[in-house]
Design a protein around this nucleic acid. Structure first.
Lengths: 344, 344
DNA sequence: CTGTTAGCGCCTTCAC
DNA sequence: GTGAAGGCGCTAACAG
């Protein structure tokens, strides 16, 4: 690997001092127009770019934002983190920085990794994801004055939490699904949920309940099933709701995996998804679009989340949070018109 | 953010020179045992870690490996890159370095981004993914003496390519699937493929053909359908194969999305996946495990790929490549015993 | 507006 | 085995 051009070489070639080249780069206003032009020509000619480490050493910054890649259940279908990371990388780049990836155990056990990165001045800030209730990282970082932003909340309530955060409004999402189903003419809408006590699951259940209440349709206990394990009980859960008599004509699921369970339960009864019973999911996983019929789902606004996260990194006293609404993506599972379209 | 401890502070506190501390870290053999112990105590006490930028400035290395996050079709179900990136991050860390993420357009259009990173000395090497036939990056990097390793081959044949590579043996994968189906008693095994001319698709087709030939079962044109667009023609493609008369009793699909098309086509005919017709996929996407019945698929050995990639980065004259076999994950779609298990 | 000086924190070279 | 000097490439602070 040949050595890269240095500022000194540019300066020599342009017949100016090193500092003038530096100014041409970092404070063009301080340089006379014709000098600026000449310096820039040499910079282009030589393909010069300031060495990030040398610049960082001087400015006490690394230009890197730390992001922890978490372990994830191999069978989790809710893989929007992939899209999120892509969006985050692009947003961070827009500010002239880059994302540095690292691994760390969840909870307090992983804190030494954050500490190591800071001790080495390897990152300027952290972008936190996979936020858990009572997550110790937020307070730990806030205490040390380390800039960070969190995707997700640490509290189960609405109380304050250290540092700024961005989250997706789950209640708004399921409410959108309910309103969409009402427009399609449904009036008995069931809910297929996650276990109680999980903030994501509870929010999504609440949105369903509220939207039903607002529309004056039933949202009783008969219409709700919350399954303990989304990978085992899914089918059974869906079946419980499908009481042949007054069973629901539409099902709102708390995520795409649960919705897939409903697909199977319906198929087992000889019912067709989308025509006999409508189904909606949540997260708009890659699976949603390849299912037949396509699964109506709520797309996580990862691009907007990423943008806000990066903005918050640079707002020193940012606090409090921001809830972003997911976007309903309608497919054949809730609207037969889309089935005809050609998803298959 | 408080300033981090420096080597000088450690030296002062331990009553030695800076150099001795540096040696204690980088060449412990050169330091007398008792001095070493004392220095280490101070290092622990102060939580000292060498500044990565300062060290890198001196040693002409950044400790960072560049990885380009590619644009991906939003509806692609073949999302094993998520797992791969996680594995890669862990492997790179094992060597004391980190992964730096960046975005770049595919093909030659994206090369300026690689050039920029190199001009800034921001990365020591690149790990290439999403390799395309005729990918210009490999030659470009090789010409400049930049260390890199490639996940995937640039050639459509078996010819040489610049730099070391690792790839997954698609033919071996589909051959495994065929042998598995033969063991299950199938003898008419169809293939649901991708368009010809794509190396990944062609390899997977070849494995099916060869394994069938070896077993002496038919692998004629009647048993193959290659669909142009995996998102539109999937169902039709599967239907073409399901000739009620002598149609296949098992289908090997070139990826999980195609397999899902088969699920739909079978359901439309009132046939049950796994009992009436067996189906296998490829990539073991997250979807595979949440389908009902679970989809037998070939798991990409991303952990092994990641490990080899990182090893190859440090073998200066590494050339040629390595084919790794995927792992068959059997589920209900090809073995009814697994359906009973509790996937649903 | 331009140039000079002085480090940022570390490691390499060379004395001792 | 240990210490002192020098410089990696850059920018902040000041001088002209």
């Amino acid at each position: 690997m040949p050595r890269a051009t240095t500022l000194e070489q540019v300066a020599a070639r342009a017949g100016v001092s090193r500092q003038t080249v530096s100014n041409a780069l970092n404070a063009p206003g301080k340089v006379r127009p014709d000098t600026l032009r000449r310096v820039r020509e040499v910079i282009d000619e030589l393909g010069y770019r300031p060495d990030t480490k040398a610049r960082g050493l001087r400015t006490r910054s690394s230009g890197l934002i730390g992001y922890c890649v978490a372990e994830r259940r191999a069978d989790s279908v809710n893989t929007f983190m992939d899209r999120y990371l892509r969006a985050l990388t692009a947003e961070v780049e827009r500010t002239g920085r880059h994302v540095l990836l690292f691994t760390a155990a969840p909870g307090a056990e992983g804190l030494p990794v954050y500490e190591d990165l800071l001790a080495r001045s390897a990152v300027d800030a952290f972008v936190l994801s996979d936020t858990q209730v009572g997550d110790p990282r937020h307070e730990w970082l806030a205490e040390r004055g380390v800039p960070f932003a969190s995707f997700g909340r640490t509290g189960s309530g609405t109380g304050d939490q250290p540092g700024p955060w961005v989250d997706v409004d789950g209640a708004d999402g399921t409410a959108q699904a309910v309103r969409h189903l009402l427009e399609q003419g449904h009036s008995r809408i069931g809910f297929l949920g996650l276990p109680e006590g999980n903030r994501v699951g509870d929010d999504r259940a609440e949105g369903w309940r509220r939207a039903c209440a607002e529309a004056g349709v039933e949202a009783s206990g008969d219409l709700v099933v919350r399954c303990a394990d989304e990978h085992r009980d899914r089918g059974e859960a869906a079946e419980l709701l499908l009481d042949p008599g007054g069973g629901p004509t539409a099902l709102v699921a708390a995520n795409d995996a649960l919705a897939l369970g409903a697909y199977a339960a319906l198929a087992a009864r000889g019912l067709r998804v989308g025509t006999d019973v409508a189904v909606t999911g949540f997260d708009d996983s890659p699976t949603a679009s390849v299912l037949v019929p396509g699964l109506t789902s709520l797309r996580q606004p990862v691009e907007r989340v990423a943008r806000r996260m990066v903005e918050l990194l640079d707002e020193p006293d940012a606090a409090g949070g921001e809830l972003l609404s997911p976007e309903l993506v309608v497919r054949g599972s809730s609207d037969p018109v889309h089935s005809a379209g050609g998803q298959l």
